[in-house]
Design a protein around this nucleic acid. Sequence first.
DNA 1: ACCCAGGTGGCCC
DNA 2: GGGCCACATGGG
Length: 220
Amino acid sequence: MLLKIYDKLLNHFGNQNWWPADTKFEVIVGAILTQQTSWKNVEKSIKNLKNENVLEPKKLFNLPVKTLEILIRPSGFFKVKSKRLRSFLEFFVENYDGNLDKMFELSLNDLRNNLLSVHGIGPETCDSIILYSGDKPVFVVDAYTLRLCERYPIIKTKKYEEVREFFEKNLPKDVNLFKEFHALIVELGKNYCKIKPICEKCPLNEGCKHEISNNDMPNR
DNA sequence: ACCCAGGTGGCCC
DNA sequence: GGGCCACATGGG
C-alpha cells in the first residue's frame, strides 16, 4: 500500500534529493528555520549566515542574539526562532561539545527523547534532524502526511507517533527511502492537494477522498 | 488585499 | 486530550 504510493509519487515527481545543504549542521539549522515557513525564505537566512561565516556550531553559539535575529529575519518568526536556535545550541554545546558525531552516537530512542526535550524542537523538527542530518531511519510526519492519511484512508489516527510508527512498520527500514518519501509527500501537498480541480492530474487521484474544501490542512 | 508556507508552545477547558 | 492563538517574512 505505502510502497505503491511511493512508487507513483517517485514516477511522477522524480528524485527529490533532500536535504539541500552543505553540512549536517546546516540541515539542523534549516530544520528549525523552516518551521511553518517556505524553503525559499529559509535559503535567504542560510545565505546570510554563510556570508557572515557563522554557520558552524561554536561560531553560531557565540553569536549575539541580536545579530542572529537580524540574519535569520527573512525566514519569519525571527524572535521565536532565534530563541529556538539558542536552545538547541546550548543543549548541543553543553552536552556534546558541539560535536555532531557525539550526538548521533546515542541510541535512536535517547536521541529522540533528548532532542524533544529542547525548547522549540517538536516531533517533526526532531525527526527531520535525525533522518536528514543523522541518517537514521525515522519517518518524518508532517501536516501533508496527515492529510494524505486522511484522504486515502491509510490510517484513522492523526496522532504523530502512531502515524510515524505505522509508516516505519509498513516500509522497508531504508534511510534513503524515508528521505525521498517524505520529500515526495511534501511535493505532492504543495502541487496537488489544495484545489479540487487540479486533482485530475494528481498521481494519486485514484481513490482520493478529496471532496470538500480547498484547504483542509490538519492544523489550520 | 488577501492566502499560504517543510511547526511549536502556551493557555484554556 | 483537543481547540485556539501568537509568532513574521516573502511570494503568489
